[in-house]
């Protein structure tokens, strides 16, 4: 699974993107976030407050219950501030 990070989420995690292999137990975005939090101290810090994390799966914003699979492109970022 390819994961992209943007804005301060990327700054805190320290990488722009990463590929991870997920187990069958990870079925939705919420599971993935829990899994990622355990990857490193940086991940844990960046993803600590889920209320300020937004997720896109294959470039569509989704909620925490959205189902994911290994071929998806996931992006994690803070609320958007365009305009």
């Amino acid at each position: 699974m390819h994961i992209k990070y943007f804005s301060w989420v990327r700054d805190q995690i320290g990488v722009e993107s990463e590929n991870i292999t997920i187990s069958n137990e990870i079925t939705n975005v919420n599971d993935l976030l829990k899994h990622l939090k355990n990857q490193s101290e940086n991940h844990s810090k960046a993803l600590n407050d889920i209320s300020v994390i937004r997720c896109a799966v294959n470039m569509e914003v989704v909620d925490l219950e959205f189902s994911i699979n290994d071929n998806d492109e996931i992006a994690l970022f803070p609320p958007m501030t365009g305009g």
């Binding site: 943007f6 804005s7 301060w8 896109a56 914003v61 803070p78 958007m80 501030t81 365009g82 305009g83």
Partner: peptide
């Protein structure tokens, strides 16, 4: 269009000021 794109288009703003850099936060009013 401008109201929707402010909170729905995936842009993020990094302000660089004399006090350092900070990412602009989402505004409740937006």
């Amino acid at each position: 269009l401008i109201d929707w794109l402010k909170t729905k288009a995936p842009f993020w703003k990094l302000e660089s000021t004399n006090n350092g850099d900070n990412w602009v936060k989402e505004k409740i009013s937006d």
